Simulated assay, not measured.
Amino acid sequence: MDNASFIASLLAGAAAGTSTDLAFFPIDTLKTRLQAAGGFFANGGYFGVYRGLGSAVVASAPSASLFFVSYDAMKTYSRPVFSKLITSSDQMAETATHMFSSSAGEIAACMVRVPAEVIKQRTQTHRSDSSWQTLKKLLQNENGEGIRRNLYRGWSTTIMREIPFTCIQFPLYEFLKKKWAQTTGQSQVAPWQGAFCGCLAGGVAAATTTPLDVLKTRIMLSHSSIPVMQLARHIYKTEGWGVFYSGVGPRTLWISAGGAIFLGVYETVHSVLL
Rank of each mutant, 00 (worst) to 15 (best):
H126L: 01
W180P: 00
I107E: 05
N141H: 00
W132A: 12
T208R: 01
T209L: 02
Y152C: 06
M220I: 08
F6Q: 10
L22H: 03
V112Y: 00
L215I: 15
E267N: 10
G13N: 06
I159L: 11
T29S: 15
D90N: 10
T123V: 00
E162I: 02
C197W: 03
L253H: 00
S70P: 00
G247R: 05
F244S: 02
V269P: 02
L263Q: 07
A64T: 04
G198C: 09
G146H: 05
I7W: 10
T166Q: 15
Y236D: 11
A23Y: 06
I255R: 00
F262V: 10
F24T: 08
Q186L: 14
G242A: 14
K177Y: 05
V265N: 04
A56F: 01
E94M: 12
W180G: 05
Y46H: 12
R51N: 15
T87N: 08
A64S: 13
A61D: 04
W155H: 01
V189N: 03
N43F: 08
C167L: 10
E145Q: 08
G264L: 03
V57W: 07
K237R: 07
F68C: 10
R33F: 13
G144K: 01
E239I: 11
R218D: 02
D28Y: 13
P115D: 06
M1I: 09
E145M: 04
Y245L: 08
N150I: 08
A205K: 03
A104K: 04
N3T: 15
F82P: 01
D28M: 11
